[in-house]
Design a protein around this nucleic acid. Structure first.
Lengths: 253, 253
DNA sequence: CGGCGCATTGAACTTATTCAAACGATGTGG
DNA sequence: CCACATCGTTTGAATAAGTTCAATGCGCCG
């Protein structure tokens, strides 16, 4: 039997400012003292920079499992950083088909798709009860004009998304079903590890159907790959609980 | 028989500043008088802004068919705008597999992948003899701090790439072979039209293999789809020459 | 004219999908 | 507390879609 930690969010939550009450929008948080500042802010900011930073007024907001943080067509004014929880991003085809394009966890940013047309072009849906920081993009841009490090940080953020999606296109265009699932597991593992969680044991937050959409295949195929990897002693799985047994083995299909 | 214009570049070339000689790097060009300024610069700049703009010192460079504008691992310092010609962008998997992630034509920008890690993460290869504007990203960032319109323009540029790749992920993850090829043809058609070329008659600049890679399939499958569309009277094709006969038909597979 | 590089076409094969059924955990009501 | 409905997951068998391998065709250039 596996004893899986609620890895995506529970371990960190104690470090975060306590948030009580039921209002969806919480009081402003100080970025300068946030546990995530090393993830979502550039390094090297001085005290004066942090003072300017507070002007961005990063409020936070709770989003319940299944709720949308924003939807395709919504006016764009903010970007978001995941504080607690996780999200999927979905693009909708006119004919009703859906494609999951991202999964985002603690410290990752959402919403930059909205800059282009000044409205969002996809839906961001919470995979579990989650909390995000709200950052006014207009104020962020103003800040970028003043703090060079911040400007570069925002540019790196956007460029990073471009690089990441290029990798996803390689996955979707060139890799077999087993390779896709293996690559996904290794990717999640690395992101967990970089946040201080176990690289080998975690609970997935998304359904097989959502994962299948993200990987460009059908949910049955994903399920078969999980079963095969288990038979081959690469992983243990039980539903959404995953334990990686052979990292190298996963790396070579 | 089809009489295909060399649509990707020839019609516009007469508007562009004449460039003689064989040196790969040409003298600086004035953005303020460039035929492409409406494509690659924001609207609403005033005379003072244009004066500042010249400081970016947009030199131009010729790249021969098959040559790399930059390669994976190259140090990042510039972004590029296609003046004449066209490029493919290729990401390389460690095991040797390649994925074409973009095709860029006149007025489109290249190189923003390099911002993230300060080095390029893919190869940009000329599909034909081409000319690009070279823009120092460092100077561009400095300019962004001074000209708000410019900052927003750069942000829109990057966000636009994010939106575009989301669409490509939908294509790769959800669409059938015939739908992918049809979507590609309509996409090229729209880009041609927006540049003043025929929306229905053009020459593709890439091989079947390159197109197949971009669309996440094999070159034989692409060829079969072209043949089928021709049989179904949706297009006429002869090698890389394409004439669209039924735009609506292509739109509904 | 002959050779080379793409592109096209055919036929066998492989992979992933589709459809269908069963399973297992969870939660509800009798 | 157990029966039962529900939702997501797993598994199997038949099918469809795209790939692979191989041969042929076509235009271009020396």
């Amino acid at each position: 039997m596996l004893a899986m930690p609620s890895a995506l969010s529970s371990a960190l939550s104690s470090e975060l400012p306590s948030e009580s009450g039921t209002h969806p929008i919480e009081a402003a948080q100080r970025c300068s003292s946030c546990a995530l500042r090393n993830i979502c802010l550039p390094e090297g900011l001085d005290t004066a920079d942090y003072a300017l930073l507070e002007s961005v007024i990063c409020t936070s907001k709770r989003v319940q499992r299944g709720e949308a943080l924003y939807k395709n067509g919504d006016a764009f004014s903010n970007i978001y950083v995941v504080r607690v929880g996780s999200f999927k991003t979905v693009v909708n085809h006119p004919d009703g088909r859906e494609q999951v394009t991202r999964f985002d966890i603690t410290g990752e940013s959402l919403g930059l798709d909205g800059v282009y047309a000044n409205q969002h072009s996809c839906d961001a849906i919470a995979l579990e009860d989650s909390t995000v920081c709200i950052i006014s993009f207009e104020r962020l841009e103003a800040l970028c004009s003043q703090i060079k490090l911040m400007q570069r940080h925002v540019h790196r953020l956007m460029s990073g998304e471009i690089v990441r999606t290029a990798g996803q296109m390689m996955l979707l265009g060139n890799m077999r079903a087993d390779e896709r699932v293996a690559a996904f597991l290794l990717n999640i593992s690395a992101r967990m590890k970089s946040r201080g969680y176990s690289a080998t044991e975690f609970n997935l937050r998304m359904s097989r159907a959502e994962l299948a959409s993200y990987l460009g295949m059908k949910l049955e195929t994903v399920s078969r790959m999980f079963s095969r990897f288990q038979k081959d002693k690469l992983i243990n799985t039980h539903g959404r609980a995953v334990r990686i047994l052979d990292m190298d083995g996963l790396g070579s299909v």
